[in-house]
């Protein structure tokens, strides 16, 4: 195989690094690649210029006008709500309270927020799992339950698998080492219809800044058509696409911002489960328009929400709904 240009090799390393994945090992690595990777790693923490400028003017205003300690309202904020990544699954579930208990018992979930409805059900809740987040609400007649498939990366797949079963889940298959990914990999279904692939990644480290603990996994019919859609609608980037000789997507990892989701061609008992996904983007209005141009249909035009986000909703051609949001501050 001819050696790929250095710019391509570097870009693949950067792509993977943006979401803390390990890049594919280079077949014929250029020695120049290795010395550039540490530079790229540090650049992930590069400060935003607009923040640097806003903070300076904030401090200057304070010294010149002797203002109170409160930061000025014009302070520019990062587009993601603290604690969130670019992609968060939003699960509508029958029995929200019990589902939160399950997340705590099975996956050491930490309840971050609960907004109850007047009838005692959950209007909205947020549960942190590892370094990821799950949002949920109780299903009702208008919004029926939408179970999802999630990939959950953990330090010890066997221990987590066992805990999930103890918390009431049923086994789909126990963790094995013979999964094509090379990861130690098992699967369960919870009492709420959600499916979880529980995996211990090999070759990279899950952790506070590492691989995302929670990644949506979409089984799709004609999955290969989803990749160009996500690229044009949400400025996504395909990090690794493995196809069968017939052109079916066996597995693909798709990056949006600092997080990823995975897709493959629906097969056997793993059929499409259209779901809700919440994505944080720098400019909701622009991305909403972009998604519609790419073939999404509108669910809700962009509006400012009382909880401090500007948000919109679209549906993709595969039936999944996307909440597009930009954090505006409290």
């Amino acid at each position: 195989m001819p050696k790929r240009p250095l710019s391509e090799q570097v870009d693949e390393a950067v792509q993977a690094m943006l979401v803390s994945l390990r890049p594919r090992p280079e077949r014929d690595p250029s020695p120049s690649l290795a010395v550039l990777v540490p530079i790229a790693q540090v650049l992930r923490d590069l400060p935003r210029e607009s923040f640097r400028i806003a903070l300076k003017s904030d401090l200057q205003r304070r010294t010149s006008m002797n203002e109170a300690v409160a930061p000025s309202p014009e302070r520019s904020l990062h587009y993601m709500r603290p604690g969130f990544t670019s992609i968060t699954p939003y699960i509508l579930v029958a029995g929200g309270t019990r589902f939160v208990e399950f997340l705590k018992a099975a996956f050491n979930g930490v309840e971050r927020l609960r907004v109850p409805a007047p009838d005692g059900t959950i209007m909205h809740a947020e549960v942190a799992v590892g370094n990821g987040m799950i949002e949920l609400g109780d299903a009702n007649d208008q919004y029926p339950a939408t179970p999802v498939t999630l990939h959950h990366y953990v330090d010890d797949a066997d221990a987590t698998y066992t805990r999930a079963l103890q918390a009431g889940a049923t086994s789909i298959y126990p963790p094995t080492d013979d999964h094509p990914s090379g990861d130690r990999w098992g699967a369960i279904q919870d009492q709420f219809g959600n499916r979880w692939y529980i995996a211990t990644p090999k070759g990279w480290t899950p952790g506070p800044k590492g691989l995302r603990s929670i990644q949506p996994y979409l089984h799709l019919r004609d999955a290969h058509k989803m990749i160009p859609f996500l690229e044009s609608a949400f400025s996504a980037e395909a990090l690794g696409v493995h196809k069968s000789p017939e052109g079916h997507v066996l597995h693909a990892t798709i990056r949006i911002g600092n997080a990823t989701l995975e897709i493959d061609e629906a097969h056997g008992e793993f059929q499409p489960m259209p779901c809700y996904l919440h994505i944080y983007v720098p400019d909701t209005d622009a991305l909403y328009a972009q998604a519609l141009r790419a073939g999404a249909t509108s669910v809700e035009a962009p509006t400012n929400k009382p909880y401090g986000d500007r948000a919109a909703g679209v549906k993709d051609p595969f039936g999944n709904s996307w909440f597009i949001a930009t954090y505006l501050g409290k």
């Binding site: 903070l55 930061p71 990062h78 603290p82």
Partner: peptide, 28 residues
Amino acid sequence: HFERVYAFIASRVRDRATAEDVTSDVFH
């Protein structure tokens, strides 16, 4: 000192939004 303070904080917190909050706090 902005880069120094920010670099220190960014290496110790989880996300960019938190790094910005804490950096702002420190200079104030």
